[in-house]
């Protein structure tokens, strides 16, 4: 059984200095009620792992935490949509680590699935590859870059529907990083648009055993 809590109770699970995975891709598939509560909680010095730096045109989302100065280190794939991220990076007020999107997904998957890392051709010969000190291995004559796994204290994920067992199903392109992030954190918070009794096992994308807390996003 996943425990049903409020967005504020969920936010209280995030403590100063924690590493937090945040699902969503730009404005789509983010647990915005929970993120807003985290922003209001004033928790600080967070390391945030998120696809992007959010979109300033929307009120709620990861961009709120960044704007408030609550993020000490952002690990992301793309920050161009939120100019504040680049400004803070250049001013030295927030550390930013850029990771290729596919490598990010695999690093998180490795962290959640008990793997010691991944070997990928992505990033070879670039500033995020061997130039960044990452080892290169040759397997069957082809070079691969070693990428370490990513793990977090808390994952803040979104789902379209969540049932009383914590099973989650999705609509549209909202799956994005939510699915892997739910495997790779000590505590997983899932905000759903709709809480239902039971989801058809054929439709379950995130298994209930991964979800610790459920928040009613109230969209339905």
């Amino acid at each position: 059984m996943a425990k049903k809590i409020t967005a504020q109770e969920a936010a209280a699970l995030v403590k100063d200095g924690m590493t937090v995975m945040v699902g969503g891709f730009l404005s789509v598939g983010g647990a915005n009620e929970v993120l807003h509560a985290v922003a209001e909680s004033g928790v600080k010095n967070l390391t945030v792992i998120c696809n992007d730096g959010g979109q300033p045109k929307f009120e709620h989302g990861v961009q709120e935490l960044i704007h408030n100065g609550q993020v000490a280190h952002l690990i992301a794939t793309h920050i161009g949509v939120n100019p504040e991220v680049g400004q803070m990076m250049n001013a030295g007020t927030m550390k930013v680590t850029l990771v290729p999107q596919g490598s990010m997904a695999e690093k998180i998957r490795a962290g959640g699935y008990g793997l010691g890392g991944v070997l990928t051709p992505t990033g070879l010969g670039t500033p995020v590859g061997e130039e960044a000190g990452k080892p290169v291995y040759t397997i069957n004559g082809k070079e691969y870059l070693f990428e370490e796994p990513l793990h977090a204290d808390v994952a803040i994920c979104y789902g379209t529907q969540c049932d009383q067992y914590g099973n989650v199903r999705f609509h549209g392109t909202t799956r994005n990083f939510n699915v892997v992030m739910a495997t790779a954190a000590d505590t997983v918070i899932l905000q759903a648009d709709e809480l239902v009794d039971e989801i058809n096992p054929d439709d379950v994308i995130i298994q209930g055993i991964l979800v610790d807390y459920v928040v009613d996003g109230g969209a339905k």
Binding site: D52, T77, G80, P100, P121, G123, L124, V128
Partner: peptide, 14 residues
């Protein structure tokens, strides 16, 4: 200009 690589590094490799 540092927009980030997004998915580009994976796309051009794959």
């Amino acid at each position: 200009m540092v927009p980030g690589m997004g998915g580009a590094m994976d796309l051009v490799v794959g």
